[in-house]
């Protein structure tokens, strides 16, 4: 299936993602999460190196929603609590952007590896 050109433009215009945007998208790739779930996941995946401020998290989510990368899912109770919480999920556009971001960075990493190798030989 060919990608419509406008979606491609959106993806290109959005790259590179800033690190917080990417982390949120990456977490949501594994499935829907509520706010606290996202915070916990990011903390776990980065070994606690990235601290998420709640206010900032919602600014990021707000931004991602505006761009159509994240959407609001049902309000339901998470496993850890009986209180219902707003859940967020990633859209297909969000998936593509995250993948494109990963691809871009793999290229960058590969390129810099080559560069490093070259300089060592020299």
């Amino acid at each position: 299936m060919s990608t419509p050109p406008d979606v491609q433009t959106v993806i290109e215009a959005s790259l590179p993602l800033n690190s917080m945007d990417f982390l949120v998208l990456a977490v949501l790739t594994d499935g829907e999460r509520h706010g606290y779930g996202i915070v916990k996941d990011i903390t776990a995946r980065t070994d606690g190196r990235v601290k998420v401020r709640p206010g900032n998290l919602y600014r990021v989510i707000d931004r991602l929603m505006d761009r159509g990368f994240v959407e609001v899912k049902a309000r339901r109770a998470p496993e850890s609590s009986s209180e219902p919480r707003q859940h967020y999920g990633i859209t297909s556009l969000g998936h593509k952007v995250a993948a494109a971001h990963v691809a871009l960075f793999s290229d960058v990493v590969a390129a810099s590896g080559k560069l490093r190798h070259a300089s060592r030989l020299a």
Partner: peptide
């Protein structure tokens, strides 16, 4: 922003 996330933000702090 409040309309979209105000409640969630408060709930997150509660969590």
């Amino acid at each position: 922003f409040r309309y979209r996330h105000g409640r969630d933000l408060v709930e997150l702090y509660e969590d």
